[in-house]
């Protein structure tokens, strides 16, 4: 069969797509003003779930890709009911603490391989299936964005009380989003387990959070394309320079975080940012047009 991409590039693209799914799960919550750091924990549920089902049972691949996300959705629902009433940084810390606890429990659970983790997980979705999944999800996100649900979500983030005034039940929306995000992240974790073939508790900690989080923040809350673009750019950068070991990749990454936040505090997809850029670029032209139209309409 004609291979469009070499195995190495297939791996890298799959890796990128999986990261993208995790970033989307985080940024969909940002759009509703939910600052959740639980991604490490739900990804771990997905990864370990898929790993266990794949190596310890004869279940087909699909079960391993569907069951863990369902479990993660349930867990997210319960967690959400307990702490979604918190705001901002408090919610962030609470969700992070939860994620770390999940990882610690897994790491000490001998059924899940304890500290050794699980090895020998077989291959999962091909890179093309993954690409298909990502395209479908992005399409769904765009559809939702333009729908009433999407508008309600943005309303909740901007001003909850007014949103309630026009009949938006903020709590229910938040719970639904939290649950869906949990399932999506767990699905990404399951795919990741199949891609790398190995899972162990050390991969779900702080560095995963920082990576996913940073991409989501840089992408911003205006449009899901922001996080997508941020993830693609940074991941490509990382993949090209990543193995030289010179460490400058880290510098670039850290510097980019700082600089981009300073230039675009609400992320790259912030509409006001683009408005500012466009008026700065197209300013003189506009003025000319306005002048001529003023002159012309007399």
């Amino acid at each position: 069969m004609f291979e469009l991409l070499s195995p190495y590039h297939q791996f890298q693209l799959s890796s990128l797509l999986i990261t993208l799914l995790m970033v989307l799960s985080v940024s969909m919550l940002f759009e509703a003003g939910i600052f959740s750091l639980a991604v490490g924990g739900v990804v771990a549920i997905g990864g370990y779930g898929a790993g266990l089902l794949s190596t310890r049972s004869e279940m087909p691949l699909m079960v391993g890709l569907v069951a863990p996300p369902v479990l993660a959705a349930l867990v997210s629902l319960l967690l959400g009911m307990a702490i979604l009433r918190l705001r901002g940084i408090y919610l962030a810390l609470g969700t992070f603490a939860f994620a770390q606890l999940v990882v610690i429990v897994i790491a000490n659970w001998s059924f899940a391989g304890a500290v050794d983790g699980i090895v020998g997980i077989g291959p999962g979705l091909s890179v093309w299936s993954l690409l298909g999944v990502v395209v479908v999800i992005c399409t769904l996100m765009e559809l939702v964005r333009r729908s009433r649900f999407g508008r309600a979500t943005r309303a909740i983030r901007l001003d909850e009380r007014t949103a309630a005034g026009v009949g938006v039940d903020a709590r229910r929306y938040r719970l639904v989003l939290f649950t869906i995000a949990g399932a999506l992240a767990a699905f990404a974790g399951a795919c990741d387990a199949h891609l790398v073939g190995v899972v162990s508790s050390d991969q779900y900690g702080f560095s995963l959070l920082v990576t996913v989080f940073a991409f989501a923040l840089i992408g911003g809350t205006g449009h899901w394309l922001g996080p997508v673009a941020a993830t693609i750019c940074f991941t490509l950068f990382r993949q090209s320079f990543g193995y030289s070991g010179s460490g400058w990749e880290q510098v670039g990454y850290g510097a980019a975080l700082v600089v981009i936040m300073l230039v675009a505090p609400n992320g790259l997809s912030d509409p006001s940012l683009w408005r500012r850029l466009r008026s700065a670029a197209g300013g003189p032209g506009r003025r000319r047009v306005a002048a001529s139209s003023v002159g012309g309409t007399r």
């Binding site: 901002g88 989080f213 975080l257």
Partner: peptide, 25 residues
Amino acid sequence: PLRRRGGSEFSFVAATMGVSVLLGF
């Protein structure tokens, strides 16, 4: 500077994460 540009709570988190990476590196 971030405060002056009206950064959200979350943007401080991202920016200080970046600072942490740079300092550590």
